[in-house]
């Protein structure tokens, strides 16, 4: 276990914990956009910056910094507060229409941005480039259907060549995880339309319950779990129920 302090309050956490986790364990709030507990640390939005006073003085992104013995974390140092505010002020200037950003900024006392408004073609911008959609698609789903295009202010998320993503399975995890609701998905008839990705996938009818669901499981999942291959035709709920039932049966039929 590692001992550290968060705003002078002692905290003990397991090795390998990040400062952000330790801060939250201490009951202290920190805003984040690019952090998700299910994905690898990314350190891009720079909202979770904190000061560390010992063993050395630095301003660090808490989501990506592993705890060290004796670390003294300060979440409200002048540098940390100013770094957070400026990041939010710039994001507000980038996405003035985003209610999520407006609320987060207001929480930190930022209600207006001194840094202007986006050009007309990006007036409706909601994407803060946190990369959660890109990472969930690659790290958790394994599809890597979307990625970053361009660099600097030209950076954006899209599919290869901005056409129908060949590897998209239409799971919708990207839209689900997006903190600013920037990804537009719509189910229309037996189609799921991922407007933001110029992609349409066909929904399947669950042979068990008859509900439409999305969609083709990836081939490799079938290969990975051949024992439940036939279940990939079922909708997620029916599959979950079937799997649970199988486990229960195994448990009570096989000797312990």
């Amino acid at each position: 276990m590692i001992n550290l302090t968060v705003n002078e309050q002692p905290v003990t956490v397991p090795e390998g914990t990040t400062i952000l986790q330790a801060v939250r364990a201490a009951g202290v709030e920190l805003p984040t956009l690019c952090f998700h507990e299910g994905l690898a640390p990314y350190g891009a939005c720079r909202l979770c910056m904190v000061s560390i006073a010992a063993p050395r003085h630095a301003l660090v992104a808490s989501c990506a910094y592993p705890v060290e013995e004796g670390l003294a974390v300060e979440t409200n140092s002048p540098e940390a507060v100013s770094a957070r505010r400026l990041a939010l002020e710039f994001l507000l200037s980038r996405c003035p229409q985003s209610e999520v950003i407006q609320e987060m900024a207001a929480q930190e006392g930022v209600t207006a941005s001194r840094f202007g408004t986006p050009p007309p073609e990006r007036a409706e911008e909601l994407c803060v480039l946190c990369g959660l959609c890109v990472r969930v698609c690659r790290e958790a789903i394994g599809a890597a259907a979307i990625g970053f295009i361009g660099r600097g202010m030209e950076r954006r998320v899209g599919t290869p060549f901005d056409i129908q993503a060949a590897t998209c399975i239409g799971c919708g995890a990207c839209a689900e995880i997006c903190p600013t609701k920037a990804i537009k998905i719509e189910d229309r008839g037996n189609k799921r339309i991922l407007h933001t990705w110029h992609t349409t996938v066909e929904l399947h009818k669950c042979p068990q319950c008859g509900k439409l669901f999305a969609p083709e499981p990836m081939a490799f999942l079938g290969e990975m779990f051949p024992e439940i291959e036939e279940q990939w035709a079922l909708c997620p709920e029916c599959r979950r129920a079937r799997t649970a039932q199988q486990w229960v049966e195994q448990r009570f039929t096989s000797p312990a």
Binding site: A44, R46, A87, L91, L129, G150, R151, G152, M153
Partner: peptide, 21 residues
């Protein structure tokens, strides 16, 4: 540096652009 910023983190992406402005 603005043109070469990868755009991953907020300060470098937005900040260099704004300084240039």
């Amino acid at each position: 540096t603005m043109a070469e910023s990868c755009g991953k983190c907020t300060p470098c992406r937005e900040g260099t652009h704004y300084m240039y402005e």
